[in-house]
Design a protein around this nucleic acid. Structure first.
Length: 335
DNA sequence: AACGCATTCAACCGCGTGATT
DNA sequence: GAATCACGCGGTTGAATGCGT
């Protein structure tokens, strides 16, 4: 049975919004709120628009504190790093950039950042070799349809009414790798990040903290074995303020994280078992705070061209880190 | 000025999910 | 348990704009 249309498409206006429509929507929401029902909102607001269209317009354009215009180098870096770590989870990435919308970031990535990255042609080969392996691993395993299978895949974004609040200390990235202010520096960081950030940072700095419980922020194919080896990122004893209606839409795609995010990076327990082509890499937390290390460094011989190729081939980004079988996606948060 | 191509980005679309009936 | 609804996500589209010739 087909999906019921969300609105009567014959009777709704489409295309660009007029200033009058903007004003109507803005005024209505500011006065009455969304009422938790976007479908009914346009009628109440006197708009001949689809509810989804209203929602999008509000979230991406009319909402207060929306930041338009150029992205800063710092924002570039954050986007690159997060994309490396979590893939095209634009809403999550947007949550790290107050005032930016997922749509904005997605567009920015697709039109500019990705090109910057692709434009990097001269990087020390050794650097690339040593830093590209994880990205490659990520990319490679993501293409495996068996990713995520066999692991503890209680696919769940258990999202509760917590608040993602932006604090003075968002994700800390490897400044040493991102010291350059050149435009390519940020893009380059995406190549440089994996070893430092995806592994090291993930292990001992980027910690998604959940109070009294366990946050499993995983789902990266890189931590899922194609042969079903166990994979997860576990972080315990942490505080994780996480926000808004995340999960409202359900599942891995659910709900918008509020703009403000706090991701404290201080892991205490962390385990990651990931497979790659039959190999198993074991990532362990180092309680001393020095982080884990890859026990297997076998796949370190990827070049820039391979990475570029893979990035290109994942232009749709959707499978960059995750199994195409979305139902098996896991960004798990246990509360 | 006119044309064609490239780029940008607002908006649309289809889908997965949880909630509700 | 099945059907339906509503939400929000990520991918894609296409109109507007910029730029080169």
């Amino acid at each position: 049975m087909g999906r019921a249309p969300c609105c009567d498409k014959a009777n709704v206006k489409r295309g660009p919004w007029s200033p009058e429509e903007d004003a109507k929507l803005k005024e209505y929401i500011e006065r009455y709120g969304t009422g938790g029902n976007w479908i009914a909102l346009p009628q109440k607001a006197g708009l001949r628009r689809c509810g989804k269209s209203c929602r999008l317009r509000w979230l991406n354009y009319l909402r207060p504190n929306i930041k338009h215009g150029e992205f800063s180098d710092e924002e570039d870096k954050i986007i690159c790093n997060l994309f490396t770590n979590i893939g095209s989870r634009w809403s999550i990435i947007a949550a790290q950039l107050p005032g930016r919308t997922d749509n904005d970031i997605k567009n920015y990535w697709n039109t500019k950042l990705k090109k910057k990255l692709m434009g990097i042609s001269i990087l020390p080969s050794q650097l690339l070799k040593s830093h590209s392996s994880l990205l490659l691993q990520t990319l490679s395993t993501s293409s495996s349809p068996s990713s995520y299978r066999g692991s503890n895949t209680s696919t769940s974004y258990h999202t509760q009414t917590t608040s993602f609040t932006n604090t003075s200390e968002p994700i800390s990235f490897s400044q040493s790798l991102m010291s350059s202010s050149s435009t390519n520096a940020a893009a380059a960081s995406v190549l440089q990040v994996p070893q430092e950030s995806f592994v090291g940072r993930h292990m001992h700095q980027q910690h998604y903290q959940v109070k009294d419980n366990i946050l499993m922020f995983g789902g990266e194919a890189s931590c899922c074995s194609s042969d079903g080896s166990y994979s997860n990122h576990q972080i315990r004893e942490s505080e994780y303020e996480y926000g808004g209606a995340y999960g409202g839409g359900g599942g891995c795609r659910g709900g918008a994280i509020n703009e403000e995010v706090k991701l404290h990076m201080d892991s205490k327990n962390y385990n990651c078992f990931t497979g790659f082509g039959g190999e198993q890499k074991i990532m362990e937390n180092n309680s001393s705070g020095n982080g884990g290390m890859w026990e297997d460094q076998a796949r370190l011989d990827y070049g820039l061209e391979e990475i570029k190729q893979l990035i290109s081939s994942t232009g749709s980004c959707n499978n960059f880190l995750f199994d195409e079988n979305k139902t098996q996606e896991k960004v798990m948060m246990y509360y």
